Simulated scan of single mutants.
Amino acid sequence: MAVYTEVAFAEAAALLHALDLGDLTDLQGIKGGIENTNYFVTSERDGVTLQHVLTVFERLGFEQLPFYLHLMKHLAGKGIPVPDPAANANGDILHTIQGKPAAVVDRLRGHSELQPSVVHCEAVGEMLARMHLAGRDFELTQPNLRGLSWWNETVPVVLPFLDPDQASLIRSELAYQNHVAASPACVALPRGPIHADLFRDNVMFEDGELTGLFDFYFAGCDTFLFDLAVCLNDWCVRHSADSDDGAHDPARAQALLAAYQSVRPLTATERQLLPATLRAGAFRFWISRLWDLHLPREAAMLQAHDPSHFERVLRTRLQQAGTPAVLTSSQETCAAA
């Protein structure tokens, strides 16, 4: 759990009053996440209990946040189940706590599925494609702030903490990803607003139904394929006490990819670049977890994620020649449909 900014009960209560969300009755720090300070807030208004999430942003500034908050409103208006930021009397959805930017959004119902089944992966694939289509006419733009530029800036910072084999891998992969990104094929990939961090703990289910996508604060404009690769690398990788080798679970990977393509079929170029993009997705989270582990910020509650998991995922992707066999049948089926 990460709480960098200790929010007093009275501070949170005043903000809820300004948002016409009633009287604060409970304020609790949220487990999970390492970027922002998050609290569950419960209030009473006209005898009705309301539940929201208060986020205090620790790295993102006032100039960046309108993109994320208005993207969520845009997607909600298109029927995508995402948190809706609360506005004050002036219509502002970006607020201030202790001089830092803050937002209050409605709390989604359900729970995360950390051991997803084929059915969960199908739901995520379909909803991800719907989200990509819904965001194509979103007018604001902002680059993926944890994209290639950030990789180039951050790799030299984490290099001193790596052993020689890891250092060789991270240098060679960075060179490869720069080469791919500069290729005409990559430049031509379909792009738009993406979530960029749609891990299992950022999706809610209730009674088997997908009820919400949240934590859009890594979102940015990038390739839709990168968003898909991030999901495949988390939702469809084998996770157990006996197996964490970074390999895909065949049934879940095929289900997620087929469900995505039932809504938005991949182009031929996307299918060609999927192996490189799976590597990119693993690389991005290996770098960020190295950074969080070796260069931590002080927090009242903080537990960094283990970077070795995505190192293994990346090494597995490197060992696979071309498109992983586990994905090929799904791609070919959808391409022929």
Results as ranks from 00 to 15, higher is better:
residue 179 H to F: 13
residue 257 L to Q: 01
residue 78 K to R: 10
residue 244 D to V: 14
residue 207 D to E: 15
residue 105 V to F: 15
residue 56 V to P: 05
residue 61 G to V: 03
residue 314 L to Q: 01
residue 197 D to F: 03
residue 93 I to K: 00
residue 261 Q to M: 13
residue 336 A to S: 03
residue 288 S to N: 11
residue 219 A to I: 01
residue 176 Y to E: 14
residue 111 H to A: 12
residue 48 V to C: 13
residue 329 S to F: 00
residue 160 P to Y: 12
residue 103 A to L: 08
residue 154 T to M: 14
residue 309 H to N: 14
residue 296 P to S: 15
residue 70 H to E: 13
residue 304 A to M: 04
residue 291 W to L: 12
residue 227 D to Q: 11
residue 240 S to M: 05
residue 160 P to G: 10
residue 195 H to V: 00
residue 185 A to H: 11
residue 190 P to K: 06
residue 238 R to F: 04
residue 25 T to G: 14
residue 307 P to A: 09
residue 1 M to L: 13
residue 177 Q to W: 02
residue 66 P to I: 11
residue 152 N to D: 12
residue 143 P to G: 02
residue 183 S to Y: 08
residue 105 V to G: 08
residue 72 M to L: 11
residue 319 Q to T: 03
residue 207 D to F: 13
residue 25 T to W: 12
residue 156 P to V: 08
residue 65 L to G: 10
residue 69 L to E: 13
residue 134 A to G: 01
residue 172 S to D: 13
residue 137 D to G: 04
residue 124 V to E: 10
residue 222 D to H: 06
residue 46 D to V: 01
residue 105 V to H: 06
residue 113 E to H: 07
residue 64 Q to E: 11
residue 37 T to P: 02
residue 111 H to P: 01
residue 123 A to N: 09
residue 292 D to R: 01
residue 51 Q to H: 15
residue 207 D to Q: 14
residue 301 M to W: 15
residue 243 S to I: 15
residue 262 S to C: 06
residue 15 L to R: 09
residue 134 A to T: 08
residue 9 F to K: 11
residue 132 H to N: 03
residue 95 H to K: 08
residue 271 R to Y: 11
residue 128 L to Y: 05
residue 174 L to D: 11
residue 201 D to Y: 12
residue 86 A to E: 15
residue 18 A to W: 04
residue 122 E to K: 07
residue 21 L to D: 02
residue 285 F to S: 01
residue 260 Y to C: 00
residue 42 T to Q: 15
residue 291 W to S: 10
residue 18 A to P: 04
residue 202 N to G: 03
residue 272 Q to F: 09
residue 86 A to M: 13
residue 230 V to R: 05
residue 291 W to A: 08
residue 172 S to L: 10
residue 310 F to M: 09
residue 131 M to S: 07
residue 206 E to I: 10
residue 151 W to F: 12
residue 31 K to E: 13
residue 217 Y to G: 04
residue 274 L to I: 06
residue 35 E to R: 04
